[in-house]
């Protein structure tokens, strides 16, 4: 099997696994509590926080393929953009019920991932990386050319979602948008966690580690990877649809190579193969991005670069590996 980078994983010690389990168990309650606290504490930043929640779901989808399947990709925005455009076009022309729009986005993202995954996942390494970039470029160009449907370079606007569950209207302050995005993120996280713990998820982790062994056990590594890619495509599509629903606009940058690369940066920053690393990396990157960009609009990229270099040099496993070490020390101190 060849679509994966089969690097030998670090030895998974009991301590490391317990630290991960502790953080994993705490992830959802912490996300919910901090998310709601932020709602009250930063009422003027709800727009940013909504974008963070939707982006975290998108980065989570990348963690599924890269962190759990070992699929090297720079094309995850193809699924995000497809989901965003599908939901946006549906909202403008067909239906504006928000949960239906998320479903449409998820199906669209899953389908594009299924088709492209079946075509490209026989490749590996740099070839695969190039193919994923090609896919996202094609999707972006199709969106650009289909101007009548997508608005081309002007973007798709006029998305006016109905109240959530017929009850909660999307208000000007972005309260409903934020709470809706937070709820979708939490549900998405729980579903993703269930997937990676299922026999299918374990088999995918097995493929990442040793595809030949999985084949000898009766599994088809390529089928597992294509399925995982499609499942992650559903997550990315839902994230795209969520962005379309909460922002009311879809632009070409939602299906861009740079958006794929940014997701990768956020994931590496948080830590791969953990799920909560995707959320932490997104929150850290986008918050720092926001603070630096507003305080120094001309040099913020320089500081972002320095920050990333510091993380890579001093916490190679991402922010979460640092947190795991702190949890470990606290537990040892208590024992």
């Amino acid at each position: 099997m060849s679509a994966v980078a089969t690097n030998r994983p670090r030895r998974e010690t009991a301590g490391r696994r317990l630290r991960r389990a502790a953080l994993d168990g705490a992830a959802v309650p912490v996300m919910a509590v901090l998310g709601l606290a932020a709602f009250w504490l930063f009422p003027d930043d709800l727009g940013l926080m909504t974008r963070i929640a939707a982006t975290a779901l998108y980065v989570l989808s990348l963690d599924l393929v890269l962190g759990f399947g070992g699929i090297a990709t720079l094309g995850q925005a193809a699924m995000f953009g497809t989901g965003a455009y599908a939901a946006g076009i549906a909202a403008v022309n067909l239906v504006n019920e928000p949960i239906t729009l998320l479903a449409i986005g998820g199906v669209a993202g899953g389908l594009i991932a299924l088709v492209t995954g079946a075509l490209i996942l026989h490749a590996r390494g740099l070839t695969l990386l190039m193919l994923t970039i090609a896919v996202v470029q094609i999707v972006q160009e199709v969106a650009n050319k289909a101007r009548d449907w997508t608005g081309g370079s002007d973007g798709l606007s006029g998305i006016d979602p109905a109240p959530v569950l017929g009850l909660f209207r999307f208000d000007l302050y972005g309260r409903t948008s934020y709470l809706f995005a937070l709820a979708v993120l939490i549900v998405g996280y729980l579903v993703a966690r269930r997937i990676v713990r299922s026999p299918f998820g374990l088999a995918c982790r097995g493929v990442k580690e040793d595809p030949l062994r999985v084949a000898a056990l009766g599994g088809s590594p390529k089928r597992y990877l294509v399925t995982l890619y499609a499942v992650a495509g559903v997550f990315a599509g839902v994230a795209g649809a969520l962005t379309a629903v909460t922002s009311g606009i879809v632009g070409l940058d939602s299906a861009s190579f740079s958006w794929s690369a940014e997701a990768l940066v956020m994931l590496v920053l948080g830590g791969t193969g953990r799920l909560y690393g995707a959320v932490i990396g997104t929150v850290a990157f986008m918050t720092i991005h926001h603070i630096l960009a507003s305080s120094d609009p001309f040099h913020w990229m320089l500081f972002i670069g320095l920050f990333l270099m510091a993380i890579v040099l001093f916490a190679p496993g991402g922010i979460t590996s640092g947190i795991e070490r702190v949890v470990h020390r606290l537990k040892r101190g208590r024992a």
Partner: peptide
């Protein structure tokens, strides 16, 4: 060829 990143139980699940 045990999967080093999986627990004993998770390794066994992959053979089910």
């Amino acid at each position: 060829d045990v999967f080093r990143s999986l627990t004993v139980e998770e390794n066994l699940v992959t053979g089910l």
